[in-house]
Amino acid sequence: MTSKFVLKLYVTGQTPRTERAIQNLRRICEQNLGSQYQLFVIDVLEQPHLAEQERILATPTLIKELPPPVRRIIGDLSDTLKVLQGLDLPIHPTGTGGTQE
């Protein structure tokens, strides 16, 4: 990893879907990025102006701010292949990549 990942995850309240998204993301990041990432979780109910700024509609929405290009991934991130693709990470580097619901 040459550059650090900056990830923002927009969620709506403390719901099972929110929990699931956070867990899925942490797992994927740990397996693929080690500690080379920063994750911010933003609750749109508490900070709707941030959702407005980023024009978020769906939750959960993950925005990969760095490294470029900026990319959005919508959903609870249970589809690991799609998440890896969205983060521009090589698929199957460690042989794991199962779905966790």
Binding site: L45, D79, K82
Partner: peptide, 26 residues
Amino acid sequence: ASPQPGEEVLFAGNYDLGALLARIEN
């Protein structure tokens, strides 16, 4: 809530439009 041109969006799992509702209420 208009589509953003040139921005790539991927879908990876279940979602709702909670942010839209929060923004409208706000």
